[in-house]
Structures are given as structure tokens and as C-alpha cells.
Design a protein around this nucleic acid. Structure first.
Length: 828
RNA sequence: GCGAAUGUGGCGGAAUUGGUAGACGCGCGAGACUUAGGAUCUCGUGCCGCAAGGCGUGUGGGUUCGAGUCCCACCUUUCGCACCA
């Protein structure tokens, strides 16, 4: 070292130069490549792959990726072989709509978007192994997406049916239920219409019980699990059968004598209820307008009004149907028999009953269901109390609202006096014994419609042959390439743009060789992303979607970090596809993500960042001005990772100052012995950062390192090398470029990420004396320095002797409480 | 309506099992060094008060020697689901 005489200008921290240098070195040395075959102690750190938009990387993307990257880098310092891949989810309506808007073809737009994303991602300092990336629009990828479809088809889990589907008139495509938000298209906000189209569905509802059950075994964010539980929507109840009276014979006469036995052979209406205990209060039935029995049950007298009602309800869009509180309906003219009371009850139709749920028919118990009550009031139908709440009896009038609370059954013959829960069980058993019902569990989860009448997706690998019917494309003929067509704009026909291209869809039948035609719909983007994590480790293998041995070694994913906006879409579909592939013998695990953590949202000035608000932060600008290390660290410092935080432009300066000080500390550090007090703080910091980082408590980990820096440099002291070296390792996951540079400055020849996380010396963290807090009458009055194991009497004496505290202790204490190592409370 | 969160200085946010509320950072104030400072460093910074002291974690009660933390009743904001029988 050259010193004294002419003092040389100290080398300042120059993020731009350092970061460029380490980007190159990492690429050169392949630092971020994971040896998939040799990996010992494999650790698969997954982040949700982005949609490569034309706008480029969003701060929200970087927040998520950085959080995952820190976790992954920390695990690497713990000695794991970490695999951190990233790819692009580039198919889908979003890309296609954008391409249409700017008048370019997605096939040329997406690659340029990806290049831009890659440029931005490279600057962020992620430890991503780019040799194992995926692009869902690449035939070498979607070949296997089509393969996944074929596996479902092979196992009877993919089927085609004409169904009322959600149709977005603006995007001109079918939407999954999950993509309809409050009756409007999730993407463009247009009100969704009902249409009847032939669609491919995946039978995910069959897996509902398992998807629900398995949640208990997963280490996932509680909010995410809860969202999935709600979405799967289990409810326990019963299916009950109501015999319909023959309108010609029974209903015509005024003195109807009805047997309480359900007569076999007669028309029956099956309902689903969660309240079989209230069967004695069922005073009418309601069918959904689309219910198949409506036509048969409508009497000639009611035909006119029913028809009118049906016509109106079909026209009505789903929004008003699903959100209007005002009840509407019509009487069909027919009656059914309440199997419990034997009474004749009218059958109505109303659109507050949904065909998609349960059986599409309900028994109405207006006394104990708010919706039924409202309907009964409006149409003057009988309301019967069968549950008595506290203070009520069988005769207490219901007033102006249904009673939905707990209580005991009344007006229910042999069930009178039973509690609601017991009543459910006994009533179900009784009805079952009369062959009028059976206890069942119902799920809200619907089958997954995967057909999209659009262009920008993987063609569904199916061929229709007049002789052979629906024929799956043989696996050895995959991929079914998406043709490059100029006219990819969808129209109103409900038919995919691919259907305009005979040269593409006309193919020989794989089975008989006769002229046949391809399915012209493409599959939902969520199918692309439902299996991508299986592909990463096996990227490069063209013969299999995922290599058996590699998959065994690397999956399930060790830790998945992503946004909670995918709690019920992507995450549920991924679990489903994994389960199916497991059942088909392709995987030996059935849950793809052992641990999942949802990160929070970055907001700005109290609002979500959006172009319309003009509060979008461009990561490039910040990285140019402050460096990627400061930007990363700031993103993690502004709030708890799992909650997100408020991005303030001025906040980053504090983090930059911290890195400047760290830089100067290493640059100037001496070879002398470490100071004892500093060393104690260092080891406490190693402990804290080592605990907070894997807990994703990044903000407090950074705060702890800042605190240490304050101690380290207090009074402009020159730190010792031993005091700063572990600090470089601790900061490395957060600010990898500067850490590498400082590590090198300290004389190391290999990457800091080849080192091991510093160990802390527990013996340095304990001391013989402690600061004992003294309270008098519960109020804190000060603290005294005493021996760690001081007795209560000695502590009291010391407190009395303290000039400040002592004056509060007047007279003989009533009570003295010593919490060893913490505090003394003197009650006077 | 149902479900899940949330509420702490001027601001973002810290606080083991109940045990010094406000760590860390921004901002702000004072000072040092400077031709200069939007650089750097030092000190200060919850509120009221000259002080002693008092008051302070959405509101109102409660338990406790002691409550941001536990219990009861409300209120705020956010997110998810929403006529799911």
C-alpha cells in the first residue's frame, strides 16, 4: 500500500462500473449456472414467470424477483445447490390484443419484447440460470403443453360439451369463470355475455376434495390457502327429492289427498340444501330458468308468463343477474310434495337460483334463508318458522327477516327440540330412509374451460373425423404448430381465426387416413403456466417433457414466491395438473410447491401503480441513477416483503448511503484487532440477519445491518478487517455486485457466493451484567445495570439506591416483581 | 352480506412468551468541514411543558404488578368471494 505524502483520492463507490463488470464476469464464469445433474442438496427456488409486455419490466416484477433472488442467494450461502430459473409466459390474449392494437404480429412482437425484458432483467443482478429458460410460445415448449392436454384426454379428464359460457364481446372469446370479475371481463372490463358454445373442459371438479384436503399439508401463506378453500367452496348438505304432482289429476282438484310417501316413477325434482334440518319449513321449490324440467312442469295456464320470463332472463347479462338483489320469478303452475310434511308446495322458477350450482333447484325455506324470505314476501308465499332462536318458541312470529341463526327445531314433529346441527344429521337419515334424499358434499369449483376462440395460443391437439369422431393427435406428431397467419384478428362468430385457414386445419385422420379437420381453438394461457416448473430442469431434452431422474432430484419446487393475484387461478391449476400427471404415473409427487409465499404489492403515494395514475416507476431510471444494488435493497427495505409497501422516490437515498458507508469501511479497513464491543454487535447482527432473511423479513434484516454499520463507524473510527468481512457476506444476497467487488478487494479469488454464511459465536451474545428496567407501580422509571442473576432483594436495594428511581419508591413496597433478565416492578 | 387482513410520530415502518413503544430509514432542526453543497460527518427529533412531570399504539370497556400485544363491543381502511341454497 502506498500512503502518506500526497494523499491519493480514495476510490469511490461507482455502482455503474462495478455492476457492469460483475455482470460480465458472472456470464463469463457461468456463476449462475446450476449443475442439474451433479447438484447436491438441491434447492429449487421458483418465481412466477412474467408476461413479457411491450411496456417492459414493472417495479412489481422486480420486487417479486428480487425477493426470490435474495432467498435463493441466501440458500446458496448456506451450502445448497440452488436452481433459480426464469422464463416467459408469452401466449395469451394480453399479447394478442396488444399486437392488434399496434398492428404488428405477435410472432415478431414477442421476441422483441423478450429481448427487452432480458436486457432489463440482466441489470437487476438476478442469479438466474438462463441456460434453462422457457418461452411458452416456442414450439419446443408448447409441444409439451399439447402433450399435457393429451394426458388429460387419455385419462378421461378432458371433454367437450356445449355449455353456457362467459363470452367477452370485446376480447371476442370465452373466459373461464375465474376470469370473470363481478360479471365483467377481468382483462378489459367489458360486461360478459352468456353464449352457448362447444368447449373443451378439464374435469378439475373431480379433484375438488383432494385439492381441498391437501391444502392442510402445504406450507403456504395462510391467505393463499384461504383463498383456495373459498374458491373450492365445499359445503355439506343433502340432495333431497321432491315428487311432482301430476298436474292433470292431483293439482286440479281442490281437496287433494296426498300421501307422504314419494311415489316412484313420478317426476321428481332434486334439490341441494345445506339445511336438511329445515325441511319442515320448505314451503315452495324454485328451479333455475335453464332447468331441464321447466318446460314439462309449466302448465298451460302459466305458459305465457313463464315463456316471457325465460326470454327475459336469457337476454339478461350475467352482471345484473348476479348482482341485482331484486328478486324476480314466475309460478310454473305445478306442485310438488314436501316429503316431510306431505304438504303440497308450489314450484316456481327464478333467476336467483343458479343452474351451475348444486342441482339447479332449491327447496325454499323462507323462514330461515334471507333470499327465500325476500322472494316469499314479494310473491306472498307461506313462511313457516322451524328454528327457534334464544327466547323464541314455535309460535314466535318471524317479523321482517328470516332467522338464520342457531337454535332448536320447532314445528318439525319428531325433530322438535333438536339443535340445528343434530337436526341436520337426523333429518338427513330420516329422509334417506324414506328414499327422499341422501347426504352429499357439494363444491363450488367448476370444471375448467380451456378452449379459446383466439389465435395466440397452442392449438388444441385434436382432429375431428367423420368416421372416427374425435381423435387425439398422436404424441409423436406433436407439436401441432401454430401457423403464421396475417389475419389473426378474432371476430364475433365465436370461431377461432384458425378456422379461416383450410390449408391448416384440413388434415388426414390419424386413425383412418380420411380427410378430417383439426380443432381450431387454442388452449387457455393458464395451461401453459400450469406445468412450466416441471420443464425448467429438463430444458434441452426434446424427447420428454421432463426427465424422470432430473425431476426426482429437483421437484417438487422447494420454495415458490409469487403474487397472491394467482392464488386461485395459476396455483390451483398447477396443483390440479400435477395431481393428474401423478395419477397418470408421470410424477411421484402430487403437490408441486412444497412452500409458497405470497409477496405484497408495491404502491406509490397510497395507490397502486398504474399508467393512468401516472405513478409508474421505471426501474431503468432508478438503476441508472442509484445502481441495481441500491434499488434492490431499497425495494426490500420499504416494507415487509409479504405485505409490500409504499415506494417513495426519496427513500432510496438512505440505502445508497448505507452502501457508500459499507464501501468506505472495506476500502479503509485496517488489519488491527477487532473491538470487543463491535464484535458483539457483529455477532448479534449475524444471528439476526441469518434468521430474518430466510423468514423473508428482509426489511428488518437490512435495518439490522444498518444498525451494525452505525456501530462500526461510530465516531469515524477505522474498522478492522475482521469487523467488515462478514458484513460483505451478509449484504451479498441483497446487493450482490458490490459484495463481489468488496470480497475481491478483501483479497478473495473466488465469488462471495462460493463462501459460507458466517457463523455467529453465541458466547459473545451473553454478558454478566444486564440493563434491568425498573418500573414503579407499572410505570417505567429508568434502568439499572446489575448482575445477570441478581436476586429480587438486591435488585430492589439497587433500585432504591438509584437517585432518580429511588425517589419514586416511597414507603414499604406492597409487592415486588422481578422478571429475571428483564425488569423489576415495585408496587407501592 | 360472507371470508381474510389492517389501524403505531410529519412519512415508510420496528417491537420474543404480555415486560424500556417508536429500532432502521426518510424528512426536519442545529452544528462541523467547505469557494460552494442537493456531498460527507456530529448531535437532536412522539406530543404538551421552562422544568419537575404528564400524556401517548383507531374508539369504548375489561383482565393484569404491567397491555401495541390478551378478552368483549364498536369504528376505519384494504383485499378476496359475492343470490353457491
Amino acid at each position: 500500500m502506498t500512503m502518506t505524502s500526497s494523499v491519493p483520492e480514495p476510490v469511490a463507490y461507482d455502482p455503474a462500473a462495478i455492476e457492469a463488470r460483475w455482470r460480465e464476469r458472472w456470464a463469463e464464469l457461468g456463476t449462475h449456472r446450476t449443475d442439474i445433474a451433479q447438484g447436491e442438496s438441491p434447492f429449487y427456488a421458483l418465481m412466477m414467470f412474467p408476461y413479457p409486455s411491450a411496456e417492459g419490466l414493472h417495479v412489481g416484477n422486480l420486487f417479486a424477483f428480487t425477493g426470490c433472488d435474495i432467498y435463493a442467494r441466501f440458500q446458496r450461502l448456506q451450502g445448497h445447490t440452488v436452481f433459480e430459473p426464469l422464463g416467459y409466459d408469452a401466449f395469451g390474449i394480453h399479447s394478442e390484443n396488444f399486437a392488434l392494437k399496434v398492428g404488428r404480429h405477435p410472432m415478431e412482437l414477442i421476441p422483441s419484447n423478450i429481448r427487452n425484458f432480458r436486457r432489463q432483467l440482466d441489470r437487476a443482478g438476478l442469479m438466474v440460470d438462463w441456460s434453462k429458460s422457457v418461452d411458452t410460445t416456442d414450439p419446443s415448449y408448447y409441444k409439451w403443453t399439447q402433450w399435457v392436454f393429451l394426458q388429460l384426454h387419455k385419462h378421461g379428464l378432458a371433454y367437450k360439451k356445449a355449455a353456457a359460457v362467459n363470452w367477452c364481446p370485446s376480447c371476442k372469446t370465452v373466459l373461464a369463470n375465474e376470469q370473470v370479475v363481478a360479471g365483467a371481463c377481468e382483462r378489459c372490463g367489458t360486461v360478459v355475455e352468456q353464449r352457448f358454445l362447444e368447449q373443451w373442459f378439464f374435469n378439475i371438479s373431480k379433484y375438488a376434495p383432494r385439492l381441498l384436503e391437501n391444502l392442510n399439508t402445504l406450507d403456504w401463506s395462510a391467505t393463499t390457502k384461504q383463498a383456495q378453500r373459498n374458491w373450492i367452496g365445499r359445503s355439506d348438505g343433502a340432495r333431497l327429492r321432491f315428487a311432482v304432482l301430476d298436474p292433470l289429476t292431483d293439482a286440479g282438484s281442490s281437496a287433494v289427498s296426498v300421501t307422504t310417501e314419494v311415489r316412484s316413477g313420478s317426476t321428481q325434482i332434486e334439490v341441494f340444501t345445506t339445511r336438511p334440518d329445515t325441511i319442515f319449513g320448505a314451503t315452495y321449490l324454485v328451479l333455475a330458468p335453464e332447468h331441464p324440467l321447466v318446460e314439462q312442469l309449466t302448465t298451460p295456464m302459466q305458459e305465457g308468463v313463464v315463456r316471457e320470463y325465460l326470454a327475459a332472463s336469457v337476454k339478461q347479462d350475467l352482471v345484473s343477474r348476479k348482482t341485482t338483489k331484486e328478486k324476480t320469478g314466475e309460478f310454473t303452475g305445478s306442485y310438488a310434495v314436501n316429503p316431510a310434511t306431505g304438504e303440497m308446495i308450489p314450484i316456481w322458477i327464478a333467476d336467483y337460483v343458479l343452474m351451475e350450482y348444486g342441482t339447479g333447484a332449491i327447496m325454499a325455506v323462507p323462514g330461515h334463508d334471507e333470499r327465500d324470505f325476500e322472494f316469499a314476501q314479494k310473491f306472498d308465499l307461506p313462511i313457516q318458522r322451524v328454528v327457534a332462536g334464544p327466547g323464541d318458541n314455535a309460535k314466535t312470529p318471524l317479523g321482517d327477516a328470516a332467522y338464520v341463526g342457531d337454535g332448536v327445531l320447532v314445528n318439525s314433529e319428531q325433530f322438535d327440540g333438536l339443535g340445528v346441527e343434530e337436526g341436520k344429521v337426523k333429518a338427513t337419515a330420516w329422509l334417506a330412509s324414506k328414499h327422499a334424499g341422501v347426504g352429499v358434499t357439494n363444491y363450488r369449483l367448476h370444471d375448467w374451460c380451456i378452449s379459446r376462440q383466439r389465435y395466440w395460443g397452442p392449438p388444441i391437439p385434436i382432429i375431428y373425423c367423420d368416421d372416427c369422431g374425435t381423435v387425439p393427435v398422436p404424441e409423436d406428431q406433436l407439436p401441432v404448430l401454430l401457423p403464421n397467419i396475417p389475419d389473426f384478428k378474432p371476430d364475433d362468430s365465436g370461431i377461432s381465426p384458425l378456422a379461416r385457414h383450410q390449408e391448416w386445419y384440413r388434415v388426414p385422420c390419424p386413425s383412418c387416413g380420411k380427410q378430417a379437420r383439426r380443432e381450431t381453438d387454442v388452449s387457455d394461457t393458464f395451461l401453459d403456466s400450469a406445468w412450466y416448473f416441471l420443464r425448467y430442469p429438463s430444458v434441452g431434452r426434446d424427447d420428454v417433457p421432463f426427465d424422470r431422474e432430473t425431476t426426482k432430484k429437483w421437484l417438487p419446487v422447494t420454495t415458490y414466491i409469487g403474487g397472491n393475484e394467482h392464488a386461485v387461478l395459476h396455483l390451483l391449476y398447477s396443483r390440479f395438473i400435477t395431481m393428474v400427471l401423478h395419477d397418470a404415473g408421470h410424477l411421484d409427487f402430487e403437490e408441486p410447491f412444497t412452500k409458497f409465499r405470497a409477496h405484497g404489492l408495491i404502491i406509490k403515494e397510497g395507490a397502486k401503480m398504474s399508467k393512468s395514475k401516472g405513478n409508474v416507476v421505471n426501474p431503468d431510471d432508478f438503476i441508472n441513477e442509484w445502481g441495481a444494488d441500491a434499488f434492490r435493497t431499497y425495494l426490500m427495505f420499504l416494507g415487509p416483503f409479504e405485505e409490500g409497501g409504499d415506494f417513495r422516490d426519496s427513500g432510496i437515498s438512505g440505502v445508497k448511503r448505507f452502501l457508500d458507508r459499507l464501501w468506505a469501511s472495506v476500502r479503509d479497513c485496517g488489519t488491527g484487532a477487532a473491538d470487543d464491543e463491535v464484535l458483539r454487535k457483529l455477532h448479534a447482527t449475524i444471528k439476526k440477519v441469518g434468521e430474518d432473511t430466510p423468514a423473508l423479513s428482509y426489511n428488518t434484516a437490512i435495518a439490522a445491518m444498518m444498525e451494525y454499520m452505525n456501530v462500526l463507524r461510530r465516531g469515524e473510527r477505522v474498522p478492522a478487517r475482521a469487523e467488515v468481512e462478514p458484513m460483505v457476506q451478509m449484504v451479498a444476497p441483497f446487493a450482490p455486485h458490490i459484495a463481489e467487488e468488496l470480497w475481491e478487494m478483501l483479497g478473495h479469488k473466488t465469488s462471495v457466493f462460493q463462501s459460507r454464511w458466517p457463523a455467529f459465536d453465541a458466547s459473545l451474545l451473553t454478558s454478566d451484567t444486564i440493563d434491568l428496567v425498573v418500573q414503579v407501580g407499572g410505570k417505567t422509571r429508568g434502568k439499572i445495570v446489575v448482575a445477570k442473576d441478581i436476586t429480587q432483594d438486591a435488585a430492589l436495594a439497587a433500585a432504591k439506591a438509584d437517585p432518580v428511581i429511588g425517589k419514586f419508591i416511597t414507603g414499604e413496597p406492597k409487592k415486588v416483581i422481578l422478571v429475571p433478565g428483564r425488569l423489576l416492578n415495585v408496587v407501592v
